[in-house]
Amino acid sequence: MLLACRCGTNTIDAVEALATCIYVAYCNWFPTRGHLNGLVDPSHSYSKLSFFSNPVFPFRQVRTPLSPRPPDPRARITMLAPVARLAAKRLLEIRAALGASPSIASSSSATASRSLSTALNYHLDSPDNNPDMPWEFSEANKEKVKEILSHYPSNYKQSAVIPLLDLAQQQHGGWLPVSAMNAVAKVIEVAPIRVYEVATFYTMFNRAKVGKYHLLVCGTTPCMIRGSRDIEEALLNHLGVKRNEVTKDGLFSVGEMECMGCCVNAPMITVADYSKGSEGYTYNYYEDVTPKRVIEIVEMLKRGEAPPVGTQNPNRIRGGPAGGNTTLLGEPKPPPCRDLDAC
């Protein structure tokens, strides 16, 4: 169904293909029930299906009987194999057609505009993200790779996969192409799938393009109660993008992050700054923000300025209460039953 939802004009075709496979399987396993009022002869198995020759109802096609229905369930499974192969071939054709679509091939932002869920779930080759693209760590980062590997025993290089992926993401402007994952796999001497498993599990690894300043709005309960949805809406409207899209100038993108540990200063956002590569990478928190304040922060970043990090409430000091302390105003009294000076 995920494929069907992503096939655009081929959605109906994909759904019909899926429905046909399910129905034929049903007919094979339940010969007395799955005949749809005689539209399909339940006494035969079918493998040569023409999915799309009838636009109204694909099951009305006349099929050539291959053999009488065998009583052995294992034989029924064998008869379903051609159907599965045909369905897989058709779905691959749909995917190929989708990948060759001019609107996708010519759009430089096709990968960036994919929703976060699809960007996390699967990989689609594109001109700027495919296994044939050359990718390697820069000379400066190769030294960092050696330093990272030195923290682990030589027979446990694979334990360095997360910091190495993070370094690769910083070098590549905030996201990980599949060729970068392959490069990390070579460094730690594992199969590439082992690196893919990590990169697709942790949401802080971006597998689609992000802006040089990637703005992440906390969406967990304390921030939500304090207005994080309004903050995200203000950012999206001001930048003219949807969530996980990149602005036309390539500077900004907006995403959502779960709890980042600043609940006392909710709501908050973080800004992953990839504008200076891995050498100048920063990941800064901005707390006690308002819709007006986050727009001011964006404009400061656009001008190349550095907004003050931490709380944006002038009446607070770090995580302290607004207006200053209301309790513990002096030195606490020692317990009367213990001589602390004697310790």
Rank of each mutant, 00 (worst) to 15 (best):
R243Y: 02
G250C: 04
R243A: 14
E258N: 07
S253H: 08
V254D: 13
R243Q: 15
P267G: 09
M268I: 07
G250R: 04
P267H: 03
E258W: 10
G255S: 15
C263Y: 06
N265T: 11
S253E: 10
C262H: 13
K248Y: 00
N265D: 15
K248P: 00
G255H: 12
F252C: 06
E245T: 03
M260A: 10
M257F: 06
E256R: 13
V241H: 00
N244E: 13
M260V: 12
E245S: 11
N244M: 08
G261A: 11
L251F: 04
V246Y: 07
M268R: 05
V264K: 13
M268W: 11
S253N: 08
K248W: 00
V254F: 10
C262E: 13
V264D: 06
V246T: 13
K242M: 04
D249P: 05
M260C: 08
T247V: 07
D249V: 02
C263S: 12
D249E: 04
A266K: 02
V241Q: 01
M257H: 05
D249H: 03
K276H: 13
G250W: 02
A272W: 06
C262V: 07
C259W: 07
N265I: 01
L251R: 12
S253R: 09
L251G: 01
S253F: 05
G261V: 07
A266L: 02
E258M: 06
S275N: 13
F252W: 04
S253M: 09
I269S: 02
A266Q: 03
A272G: 04
N265V: 02
N265L: 15
F252Y: 05
E245R: 02
E279I: 01
D273H: 09
G261L: 08
C259R: 09
V241L: 00
K242A: 10
C263M: 08
V254G: 14
G250Y: 02
G277F: 00
